[in-house]
Nucleic acid binder design. Structure first.
Lengths: 247, 247
DNA sequence: CCTTGACCCTCCCGCGACGGGAGGGTGCAT
DNA sequence: ATGCACCCTCCCGTCGCGGGAGGGTCAAGG
């Protein structure tokens, strides 16, 4: 009925050291201790450890797992969606780095030397610098964004753009399938969009996100960018963002 | 001619702290110091920092960058190939985790609860355990392999299989294009195969790899596995491996 | 000549999720 | 009584810096 660490380790395939760690941070504390101080796990503890293993397989941080297990479904969903955004970002970034790496290897095979342009790619992230500054220069969000983006390399920008394209695609697909912008699925994509901004640029609150949504329609250049992808998409995106902000 | 850390930071977009760090580990040491102890970087130092930035964009570890910069082309290629293997592995793994995550989210949306089988997938990695042990049980390589694989989860196995499939694909494609197994491109894929084994199972030397290559032909079950993908592929793979081992 | 402010220096702690080891106690079989 | 497998609690190390404390340096302005 009560298992010692070694037994638990064999049953769960978690290392004894990991069990110690989970105990010390309060993620999974054994229900009891023997007279001599041995950790004693009950079957309920084992179930919790199984759940932890599962969430670890999704590469959630231990902190997130604590949150996810703390209260039922409601919060769990949010944590998983956030994790999805993180993983998708990593996927795009890895793809971009691999592409850069392959270019480099090709240059080696061809015995040529690399130029600076080859090294850093054609995209010039400072292109819109002046404009953005004039518009948002004195906002806090802009400062944070500047702070972060100045450390991005070519691969980061490529990854960011790829991810943005994916999200735009998903909006366009939903719109094409005539899923209303007030549907949960549209709001889910809007949430991914928010997290995308959150991670790549600055902490974007739902309110701030809603303000951005309005601007996508109000500013003709943003609107044109969306609408050339599909007619009415700017309005669709705005509404999905509003739906997400209010749910 | 001589730049202080702040200037270098602005020129290279590396943080001052990073410059200190590179100095302290000996990656990029400034050519001089001022009387008062200020780091003074020459233009040659700046060039080296550019190279470091570039390799960092490929996500090489600082240690690998030291190696890559230490001696010219010969070693650089090896480092890049190893990095390619690592990134590809991460790509596959991330894809697998994302798939698992999406399954989980779908289960949430459908309001169903997850079964253990859904959680851990259909693949049973212990399927071949007895056989493998009978064959290689007393080898050092097998022990290390056991040590490592017992910590793998469903997503790892899926990622490993996906990566193996990619490599097999590349062999098949080269064979289909009648690229000789002695070609550098075939040997490159063989090297990726070796690194695949190296990372997922145990440190595989080129000699050991060559032995495995011979076995792929000698053992009818291995051979059949390759040849059902494409006739003569087992021999092709073996020869590519031998080419790689000898170059 | 002195102060101010921007810059520079050298430690040193912290992150995340443990791995690994030292130094020492426990529990059961021989 | 001894051996051996198992358990415990610290504590250091990983990787690439971020951030801060505590203190020196340098040119400009009062």
């Amino acid at each position: 009925m009560a298992f010692k660490v070694g037994e638990v380790s064999r049953l769960t395939r978690l290392s004894v050291r990991a069990l110690h760690h989970y105990d010390s941070i309060g993620l999974v504390k054994p229900s009891g201790r023997s007279a001599s101080g041995y950790r004693l796990y009950t079957e309920r503890d084992l179930e919790r450890l199984q759940e932890v293993s599962f969430y670890r397989a999704l590469e959630l941080s231990l902190e997130d797992i604590v949150r996810a297990l703390a209260d039922p479904a409601s919060d769990r969903r949010r944590v998983l969606l956030a994790q999805r955004a993180l993983l998708e970002q990593r996927l795009e970034k890895t793809r971009a780095v691999l592409a850069l790496l392959d270019d480099t290897l090709r240059a080696f095979d061809g015995e040529r030397t690399m130029t600076t342009e080859e090294m850093f790619g054609a995209f010039d992230p400072t292109e819109y610098e002046e404009e953005a500054e004039a518009r948002w220069g004195d906002t806090e969000a802009y400062r944070i964004s500047q702070e972060r983006t100045k450390r991005y390399g070519a691969a980061d920008w490529a990854a960011m753009k790829a991810e943005a394209a994916t999200i735009l695609d998903d909006f366009a697909t939903l719109a094409a399938e005539e899923v209303p912008a007030t549907d949960d699925r549209a709001a889910d994509v809007a949430e991914r969009h928010r997290l995308h901004l959150y991670r790549w640029f600055y902490p974007t609150s739902r309110e701030h996100h809603a303000a951005l949504g309005r601007m996508y329609v109000a500013d003709p250049r943003f609107a044109a960018n969306y609408d050339q992808r599909r007619a009415g998409l700017a309005v669709y995106v705005r509404d999905a963002i509003l739906t997400n902000a209010l749910r």
